[in-house]
Design a binder for these strands. Structure first.
Length: 295
DNA sequence: CGCGCAACCTGTCTGC
DNA sequence: TGCAGACAGGTTGCGC
């Protein structure tokens, strides 16, 4: 479940610790981690690479790597999926024993373990910036904290679409980084029902939705992420966002802004939490007019 | 093309 | 207590 705030938290904690470090050795303990690369090829291609920077795009953590050959630039893309964690040791702490899928060892004696009980997490190597942007281009939409993420951009993506707004938000090709938790939290903040067809949202609602997304994500980052589904910090610590959820995981409890009980429904196969009083489904007809190409 | 849904995994919880 | 089955939910790929 690591979403944007959880990955951002990990990035902030690890960046200063790995930037400038050289990778002495990599061990892959579960071949699924680096598919379709074979573990040996994967391990060898990372040996002696230096970490230039650690950044984030959507739910991906990206390590930019440089070899001795100045022309070689590659990117290590890490996705934690459902249950992945990156645990750091400076060389003196006890290492994790269970569910370790891969280990990175650095030239200062420190190491990072990729720990992932459910084995959904993936690490892949991408050579060059063109390949990197190509990889992201077809699967990731706008970054929420970019200036260009605006209510108008939401409108452009949402117009004429009958899809419920929640699955719209979960589609990474629309907006990168929002997952099940923050979609629920953003929709509650915006006062919008998760099943509302996204194309029927009016201007005021899109403004609220835009603000709700940013507020929910900012709250998550400030809290160091939400430690549900075993999410942990680089040192094994926990975030506190799970204690600040307004609706998510709060079935049967009272809504923070009215007296109604929070309910749980299934939407697009996902557990979805909402307040029926604060988030009313609006009966509106969707104009399915053709989208005209314009310049 | 848009959209829903099964599949990928395994630990944990629920009900009988 | 034991065990089957449901559930968790990010991404991909398939089918309508």
């Amino acid at each position: 479940m690591p979403e944007l705030p959880e990955v951002e938290t990990i990035k902030r904690q690890l960046a200063a610790r790995v930037e400038g470090r050289k990778i002495d050795q990599v061990k892959v303990h579960d071949p699924k981690l680096c598919e379709p690369f074979s573990p040996r090829v994967f391990e060898e291609s990372l040996r002696d690479m230096r970490v230039v920077s650690l950044t984030r795009r959507g739910k991906y953590l990206i390590a930019e790597l440089a070899g001795d050959d100045l022309n070689s630039q590659s990117f290590l893309l890490m996705h934690l999926r459902m249950s992945g964690n990156l645990l750091y040791s400076n060389g003196t702490q006890k290492l994790e024993q269970k569910y370790v899928r891969g280990t990175f060892m650095f030239d200062d004696g420190a190491s990072i373990q990729f720990v992932d009980p459910r084995r959904f997490g993936r690490i892949l190597i991408i050579e060059g910036e063109d390949a990197l942007s190509g990889y992201f281009e077809k699967r990731l939409g706008i970054e929420p904290f970019e200036q260009s993420f605006t209510p108008e951009l939401l409108f452009e993506k949402a117009r004429c679409r009958r899809r419920p707004v929640k699955p719209f938000l979960l589609d990474q090709a629309n907006l990168a980084g929002v997952g099940n938790i923050y979609a629920d939290e953003a929709l509650f903040r915006a006062g919008i029902h998760p099943a509302q067809p996204v194309g029927t949202l009016n201007r005021a609602e899109l403004v609220s939705l835009h603000a709700g997304i940013l507020d929910a994500l900012k709250a998550g980052i400030s809290a160091g992420g939400a430690s549900v589904e075993r999410f942990r910090h680089f040192d094994g610590g926990t975030g506190s966002m799970q204690d600040e959820f307004l609706v998510h995981n709060r079935e049967g409890q009272t809504c923070p802004s009215c007296k109604a009980k929070i309910v749980k429904i299934q939407l697009a196969g996902r557990g979805t939490y909402l307040c029926r009083s604060c988030q009313r489904l609006r009966r509106r007809t969707l104009k399915t007019g053709r989208k005209d190409k314009h310049h």
